[in-house]
Structure formats: C-alpha cells, structure tokens
Design a protein around this nucleic acid. Structure first.
Lengths: 112, 112
DNA sequence: CTTGAATATGCCTTGACAGGTATATTCCTA
DNA sequence: TAGGAATATACCTGTCAAGGCATATTCAAG
C-alpha cells in the first residue's frame, strides 16, 4: 500500500503510469513520449516494478512494460474505507467537541 | 492529484490519515496514539493541510483536525480511469507485439 | 497579568532519491 | 562474430524532506 503510494508520488513516474494506462509500451517509446532520458525511465520503471505496479515482457532487445491491476485494486479497496463514513465524521465532530468540553471534569486523560 | 499522493506517501502521514478516518482528533491525541513527537505531528498535519487533505477547527487551545473528502473523491475518480480497460490492456499486448514485428518494414519510427 | 497547556515554527543535521553521464548487458542481424 | 540497437546499471552530485530540539504563540483560568 505504502509502496504503491510512494511509487506514484513521483511526478514522472505518475506520467509513466498514465501513459501505460492506454497500453503497454517499450522503454524507448516512453522516454520519447515523455521527453525523458532513457536511463531515468529505466530507473523509474525499476521502482514501479519493485512496487509491483508494472510487469515486464521481453521482446527481442525490447522490454515491454505493462500495468498490473492488483495494486490499483488494493488502492481502491483502501479508498472504500474512506467513502463509508465520510458524512459520519462530520457528525462526530460535534460529539467530539462536547466530549472535550465535558472532559474537563474527568481531568486525567486515558483516552478512549 | 500529485499533491495528494505525495502527502499520503509518507508512512507516518498515512498513519495519521487512517487515524483521522475514524474521527477528527486534536494534535496531542494523534501524537500520543502514534507515539510521535508533537512537533513532527504538527508538521505532518501542515503538509496534509496544504495538500487539502485535512481541515482544522480550533477549540480553545486545541486544534482539531478532520479529513476532507474531496481529495479522496478525486483519487477515486482517477482510479476509475484504470479500472476501465484493465482487461483491454492485456489484449493490446499481443497487438503491440505483432505491430512491432511488422514495423521492421517501415523502418523510420514516427510513432502513432 | 502570570502561569501552564496545546500547538506551531525555526534551525540544524542527515538520509533518501532523482537527474546526469558513462558504461555494461543483451540480443538481433548482417 | 562484429556491430549496433534497446535497455539496465554504476557512480556522482545536488536537492529536499523528515526527525530532533528549542522556542515562539495562543488561549484559558486563576
């Protein structure tokens, strides 16, 4: 999860991922499209690969990179846990505040 | 988008966000729960705030932080663009390969 | 208006990481 | 098997961000 986010947090890496979203591509094509130097693209792809975001498939001297769906699915699942209760949180704010104000009587805070 | 990912990429920040997912909390409570020093928590919250991930609400000397839903919605929307076509990409791999092999005749590559 | 609690900010140090460039590696083709 | 294309890796360098710590700030209460 954290690996996924870290990998995606880098701007150029994000661009690469978005480029691969359309279809798999060889390194050289990515470099040309994004106007990046080949070595940096290879490095970024390495990171993406280590994070499990992409797969490689060698074709002759070329290496064709494609996205893997699992990490995105995981990210989605994680996001779900935020959708549910987004409105609840607002309500609880009020509760939290009254709790805090009432808490002054209890003094010592062994939260929850 | 990138701001959101960058903010979430930091492990402790991710922990803070997940803690805030349950309910809004004051800085001190976050620090205690996550066993982090207060200044670092404040800094992380600053980053999260700048990225638009959290809102602050002052209550006495306390500052209660709560998640904002917009960034998560955006992230979700962005993720959608990956769900669609996840299977298509696999198919296109084959196409891509045959294209490459047939491309050798055309020589000069002015892609797409 | 002084004190203490809760929080923010400034400064410093250190580690990680991205870019640049050269070079190694792999594999096709003549 | 030599040469060249496509890609990976190594090494160096600069930058930036996170933690540690001291201190400033804000506010409630006596």
């Amino acid at each position: 999860m954290n690996a996924t986010l870290t990998a995606l947090a880098e701007p150029n890496r994000l661009r690469i991922v978005e480029l691969l979203r359309d279809r798999p591509r060889p390194v050289g094509e990515i470099a040309k499209r994004l106007r990046l130097r080949q070595p940096q693209v290879s490095k970024h792809l390495r990171v993406l690969s280590d994070a499990g975001l992409v797969d490689v498939r060698p074709v002759a001297q070329q290496r064709i990179y494609q996205l893997r769906s699992e990490p995105f699915d995981e990210l989605d699942t994680w996001l779900e846990t935020f959708r549910r209760g987004a409105s609840d949180r607002m309500d609880r704010l009020e509760v939290l505040i009254s709790e805090r104000k009432a808490k002054k009587e209890r003094e010592k805070d062994h939260d929850d």
